[in-house]
Simulated assay, not measured.
Amino acid sequence: MPPRTRAKGATVIAVANQKGGVAKTTSVASLGAAFAELGKRVLLVDLDPQACLTFSLGVDPEGVEGSMHDVLTGRLPLADILLECADGVDLAPSSIDLAGTEAVLLARPGREFILGNALAEQAKNYDIILLDCSPSLGVLTLGALTAASGLIIPMPCEMLGHRGVGQLLDTVRDVKKILNKKLTVLGVLPTMFDSRSGHQQEVLADVGERYGLPVLTPPIPRTVRFAEAPAVGRSILETARKSKGAAAYRAVAKDVLTRI
């Protein structure tokens, strides 16, 4: 089993929800840009084989020379794949090869600690490392929860958005018992919020009490600006700087900093 090492110097935050379509990748890109605006050295790690974060930051996943697949399988050190991106953040990109990484790792002892060990090699160079997890509770997400000290759970303000959060929290409890006692849920991040909807207002009021978790504020509003940003490889903080969505992520970033 590999030795367990912590990412000393950086605060590692996993952004996870095994339900897709919850604005997870948008939240990672936008929070990363907001932290960078606040003067933080930020690394974004794409752990999703679909490579949506990589694409959103203007990087062609098919054109990268190395990806997180190479890091997790021991082919390359993390330093060799890092890319500088336009929003003032660094990126550890994904590629389609990551789809086969879990199968490779399943046969390896201590597989849950491989990601954390890789991050520790670069942690002194960053203040915050955000992990964009795949929409599943497989080996890659377990590795992220083992490596992280904090967890943010993006969740749409609709009743179906609750689906899967309970299962994720069960996994978090298991991880804390066995793999990572320091893991803390920083909060649920309400996304795609429409303040005109009474139903969404009710869900927002209910979510913290239902799960006994803090709720990050303010909720992220629904806006077409989020869909436009990836087309130019930038976050909404650059493409629509004065929009309500950009303002919300800036405020949430400040909220997160008070919790870490």
Rank of each mutant, 00 (worst) to 15 (best):
K176L: 03
T258I: 02
R111V: 11
K8C: 00
L105P: 02
I260G: 07
R234Y: 03
A253M: 05
R4I: 15
D206W: 09
C157G: 05
R225M: 00
P2A: 12
D80G: 02
I236F: 01
L115N: 10
P135S: 09
A34R: 04
L72D: 12
R225C: 06
D255K: 11
G100M: 01
A16F: 01
M192Y: 08
D70N: 14
S95K: 13
V188E: 07
G110M: 13
G233V: 03
R259A: 04
H199Y: 05
K182W: 01
A23E: 06
V12Q: 11
D255W: 09
L179P: 00
H199M: 13
P218I: 05
V252T: 12
V175G: 08
V188A: 06
R108S: 12
P109V: 07
P156V: 05
L98N: 09
P219W: 10
E209V: 13
L38I: 03
A147S: 11
V188F: 05
S195T: 07
S56M: 02
G88H: 06
A10K: 12
G58A: 14
T146K: 05
L44D: 03
A23C: 13
R75C: 01
I260P: 03
E37H: 12
L76C: 04
P93L: 07
Q122N: 00
R108N: 02
N17K: 08
K19C: 04
K242F: 04
F55L: 14
T101E: 04
K181F: 00
A107I: 01
T101K: 06
S134L: 02
H69D: 13
L216K: 07
K176F: 00
E158P: 05
V215Y: 08
K8V: 15
C85I: 06
G110W: 13
V215D: 03
P109T: 12
G138F: 06
G20I: 02
L169I: 06
N180L: 08
A51Q: 06
Q50A: 10
T54W: 05
P218N: 09
D255R: 13
A248H: 03
K24D: 03
M68E: 02
A33H: 08
V188K: 02
L216V: 04
K254I: 07
R4M: 09
T223Y: 00
K19G: 06
K181R: 15
L179M: 11
L44F: 02
A229Q: 08
N125L: 14
V224T: 13
N117E: 15
T26W: 00
V22E: 05
P3T: 13
A147I: 11
A246T: 00
E65C: 01
G166F: 08
A29V: 13
A16I: 04
L53H: 03
T25G: 02
S149A: 14
